[in-house]
Nucleic acid binder design. Sequence first.
DNA 1: CGTGATGATTGGCCCAACCATAATGCCTCA
DNA 2: TGAGGCATTATGGTTGGGCCAATCATCACG
Lengths: 252, 252
Amino acid sequence: MAGSRETVQAREVLVPPPAEPGMFSRVSVGRISEIIVDQIRLLMRQGQLKPGDRLPPERDLCERFGVSRVTVREALRMLESSGLVEIRVGARGGAFVTAPSSDRVGEGLADLLTLSVISAADVTEVRMILEVGIVPLVCERATEQDIADLEEICERSEAALRAGGYSMDFSLEFHIRVAQATHNPAVVMLVESFRGPILMSLQQAQEAAPEMGGLGTREHERFIEAVRRRDPDAATQIMREHLERTAHRLGR
Amino acid sequence: MAGSRETVQAREVLVPPPAEPGMFSRVSVGRISEIIVDQIRLLMRQGQLKPGDRLPPERDLCERFGVSRVTVREALRMLESSGLVEIRVGARGGAFVTAPSSDRVGEGLADLLTLSVISAADVTEVRMILEVGIVPLVCERATEQDIADLEEICERSEAALRAGGYSMDFSLEFHIRVAQATHNPAVVMLVESFRGPILMSLQQAQEAAPEMGGLGTREHERFIEAVRRRDPDAATQIMREHLERTAHRLGR
DNA sequence: CGTGATGATTGGCCCAACCATAATGCCTCA
DNA sequence: TGAGGCATTATGGTTGGGCCAATCATCACG
């Protein structure tokens, strides 16, 4: 009944026929919900939809797009699952545009890991390349603030070590903060995307050799020293050894 | 009416209370569709659902999970959007478990890159780190087949150059094939994820200096030579210069 | 022996409700 | 006047039923 007719009308509105309006226009261009997803993505890319913005309520979007609520909801579900919006229920709820985050990429990576397409050793190798490779950038660009933050992490780490409450989270935090010292957002995102996998491999390493926390922290401090001296070769060397020690315990 | 009661029942069936059955069990665990997603994910992780397998039709899943079709469809939408299943319509259609691929991760990365403040220079910097960093691995692990494939790409590239039909696609293909020679799927995934951004920056480079195609191809050949000699230092040097030339034209 | 009609399977989309959750504001009672 | 509680409202979540569209298998007909 009305359902189908509305559908066709909606498609014509959303994707205008390429030529000969009304004649031979493709009647099916895939899923309507995907068209909606594309439209919203486009708005985000063009900056008309910024992080924090709230999309209109589902019922409004239905009217605007001329489709049913189910379709809009499927579109929102896809956007949400792509990490582009966050959906909250209740009054003043709705779909909020999220700030781009590396979490989603990390999830995808974690999927690949758990589905055993890639191994922990593979991830460690990438870590080595990335984290060793960025060291020269760090030496070149680290600010006083960067260095101070890194030292602060080390201090907290040592305190926790003495209190017996050390965990590999400190190491993770350290390495991510190092990446931030490159002042290259792409590098930061990449390293953060590997947060989950990194954490997994760090925990494996800790199980294999729990006493290594102290040694790791001392190496972190030596690394900071080298960065402060703006000595990329020494810093690279320290970072490489530090990571190789971890990698070695994971075996290849 | 029945709706709500069935819902609660379904939740109890799907997520058994952790302890004290019936007492203090959480009354709401979020969306039903997410529970379904988790269940199916779990089956995939446990290997009971392998790539290529077909999930039961939507209407069957409704019965099994005791939920409505819309709910099942939203779950499938999320799985699809995470790249875990592929949905085909028509008789013998349905939701098929997809072979895990890095494409989805790449899409997420691409979103991250296009939706945030990342410049071409940032991307180029990451490229440098990655593609220079993998060279030792390539020298160590490249097989005869890898080298032969790389040479074949160079030959096609030269032919196109002579015929005037050269495009930066050849360069892209070459660099991705190099990554594959590491035989580390995580590396391949990462480099492939940068395919889009890489292509962008390569095209910018070509516009800035269109005559460089020939020089690039010659450098590719020198690189292959070094790999064949298993000379990581020379190969690294060549790759670094090769990329730096590109980076330089983009300016920093 | 094609070959085209027909039916069956399955996803895509719609509708009209109703439920659940959360913020808001009013309203009563101390 | 203040504070707790109750109704209101806005919004997403879920249901059941239904029709349409795409695709594949089958079978009768030429």
